[in-house]
Amino acid sequence: MKKYTYTDKKDTRSGFGAGLLEAGKRNPNVVALCADLVGSLKMDAFIKEFPERFQQIGIAEANMIGIAAGMTIGGKVPFTGTFANFSTGRVYDQIRQSVAYSDKNVKICASHAGLTLGEDGATHQILEDIGLMKMLPGMTVINPCDYNQTKAATIAIAEHHGPVYLRFGRPVVPIFTDADQKFEIGKAWVVNEGVDVSIFATGHLVWEAIKAGEKLAEMGIDAEIINIHTIKPLDEEAILKSVAKTRCVVSAEEHNRLGGLGDSIAQVLIKHDPVPMEYVAVNDSFGESGTPDQLMKKYGLDDENIIKAVQKVLQRKGK
């Protein structure tokens, strides 16, 4: 197992804030909109640097999506910011008609996704957003894993033409990817090469997969760990290449098991190379209040649960 260490921890939303500032410096058409959550979305640096290119919307997410769609007419590249729940479920029809169907170059940037939002509880912990967004034709869906990758992804989507859903989170998590990485939309990253099992992880679960991989190595299991930061378009080639070698799969995501990364991978496997697969995901339920660590453990999204899933899938492969 390749060794991953970290010296610093930061929240992925801060990576978004840093990426937004950089994207704003590179392209004068980049504008930002926020629905009364500037501090949470870490937009302060962008606002300070480009006050005229920031639009405070107030608590009116539907209006924000429409305004963003309208700003593309005239060449702007709008980044909208609010929590993942208010970025997707609350404004699904606005995104569907005014952004996706209208093919507008809007970047829907969503913080506080998933259980790790923590104490605010299930009203705010959306676990269905990846599914909602990936079902929209033409929508790109990205869920980066740490500060550096989120920053790089934010810069990359500014240069990509078309609607994008960028999902990141609230808690402070290890920084283990390169600061100067080139983020390629739709291109999976092989975190560790292995032969026994393919672990496909996205978002906060990538670090959990690395921790699991180290423990599995001690148990004599050589896991291939692949970071699927782009859920749509999915890197089918990377998935099939890995599966050809390992012959079994575990998917890991901070999302409902219905409609998330796991389902996207399962579709690829069913069509091209059916092998045993286990999901590490929320088992079709809402979340609840608690600390991020407590919630990830209770809902089965930590390294221990990845290990259990690996053991289960290896047994199935063995049969």
């Binding site: 924000m64 305004i67 309208g70 700003m71 005239g74 005014s98």
Partner: peptide, 16 residues
């Protein structure tokens, strides 16, 4: 949805 979109277009015109 149209008024929001129109406002966005109007804001872009001002910026431009």
């Amino acid at each position: 949805q149209g008024l929001s979109v129109a406002i966005g277009c109007a804001l872009a015109k001002k910026l431009n």
